[in-house]
Design a protein around this nucleic acid. Structure first.
Lengths: 268, 268
DNA sequence: CGTAGTATG
DNA sequence: CATACTACG
């Protein structure tokens, strides 16, 4: 499951974690924790049956990603190698044997040219990383909020948003390149071709009730996992955030679904 | 009526003005509007049957007093003659013939020595003004939040608050001086000798439910009005703010209770 | 604890 | 429009 929670504390106060525990999830990738680990309650730090990992922004109340897993990873990687963006808590990867899963959060470009430039630096770095991921033969699932809708069926009002960051022609072309040229798989689209399958709705103007949304949250997977993608589910209910969680089920031979990882409180 | 509304917009959203209109009030003095006039809705600016006057802080969202009256005053005075404190919107006086009514808001000293020093400058200036008011023979009613509880019966936990700004020995002694030496009348105490008659409760720790309060809101009246004080009522219900409105009824010969001042929208 | 402001999205 | 942080009380 990947979920931009728009404040992990806010989502927790709306019952996210009790609901999450009903979903039988092996790995949860969270974006926009908007908190530093020292500010988190036990309910958030020590989810029964999971190890939790946090990659916080240096700036309080801003950005930040997390990853919860039933099985403790062998190794953890933080950041994408760009110091300023890494200080914003935007990439956290866990490795289990041949499999890596990451929680990523691309910058939003909606607050101005400077942030759009940072978003594009993040995109460029991902381009390089995707190439390396394909080359090293391991299996990768990058889960997160890319802040880009791909095609006209991934956004309600595509015409009026052609000049809006998140649906700019060159952003969409970058996703074309990632999927068509590099060969990364959009796991949702591997199994679901329907339109109006959105993962984010503006909080303004009743956008969610009218399903005026965008599909900007993804599982980016290496082609060696394409055949393993079994099912994709967006869960807009219950409401925890302006984003809906996206659950993708993979057929994998890894012991990622042990009945219960002992709740050892291994919170880092 | 005097009421520290701790945000006039917040109080309005809780229904303060509809309730106020049921109370048959001639003059309303408001403190802590926490807004500038240009931010106010018509519901707040144009209360039917009243003229409204606002004395805002220069700093947005901070302090500010207002005065509503059934009868338009002959003259309005703003500030106490101390430029820095006057920039915080802490004094607004309206005159009708021989009668003046003011809405005042003394600085709080609870956030540090610097603010306590400002509070004491405000107190000193009031001392001078009280002397002048007695000398000029007019009738004065100064309504507002003094941020000082007078005696041990004006505060729940007097022992533990002897070192707390708002109940410091020299603050209490200043009120002794104002009442006993200068001759200003505490209109509430002119007609009500009960203890536990509080006008403010901390918003923390369930203080209001347990009536852990302070009487820090006053009508300060010149001695030529003492005999006119008929009744004092604190209205802790309904809840609009951390302060309760204080209503004092005066027997006066002035036309302050015309059935309805025409709602002309005279909002300044 | 609660009303404001601010940044950020 | 919503989650944060901050100031102030």
């Amino acid at each position: 499951m990947t979920a931009n929670l728009n404040g992990i504390r806010s989502a927790a106060s709306k019952g996210f974690f009790p609901w999450f525990l009903t979903q039988e999830i092996d790995v949860l990738c969270v974006q926009e924790t908007k908190a530093q680990q020292h500010q988190l309650s036990e309910q958030i730090l020590a989810v029964p049956g999971y190890v939790s990992l946090f990659e916080d922004a240096e700036k309080r109340g801003y950005s930040g990603v997390a990853l919860y897993a039933r099985i403790a990873p062998d190794r953890v990687h933080r950041g994408i190698g760009l110091a300023d963006l890494d200080a914003e808590g935007r990439y956290l990867q866990a490795d289990w044997g041949n499999l890596s899963i990451a929680s990523f959060y691309a910058p939003s470009g909606t607050s101005g040219a400077e942030r759009q430039a940072q978003k594009e630096r993040y995109m460029e770095r991902l381009t390089t990383m995707f190439g390396e991921m394909l080359a090293d033969q391991r299996q990768y699932i990058l889960c997160g909020d890319m802040n880009i809708a791909h095609t006209t069926r991934d956004i309600k009002n595509w015409r009026s948003n052609q000049n809006t960051p998140g649906f700019l022609p060159h952003e969409r072309a970058w996703l074309d390149h990632v999927f068509d040229d590099i060969g990364i798989c959009d796991a949702f689209r591997a199994v679901d071709q329907r339109d109006e399958q959105y993962t984010w709705w503006s909080m303004r103007a009743n956008a969610r009730a009218n399903n005026v949304g965008w599909r900007i949250d993804y599982h980016f997977v290496t082609p060696n996992l394409r055949a393993s993608v079994r099912e994709a589910i967006i869960t807009p209910q219950p409401f925890f955030s302006d984003h809906a969680p996206l659950i993708i089920t993979y057929d994998l031979d890894l012991p990622t679904h042990q009945p219960h990882y002992p709740p050892l409180g291994l919170t880092s």
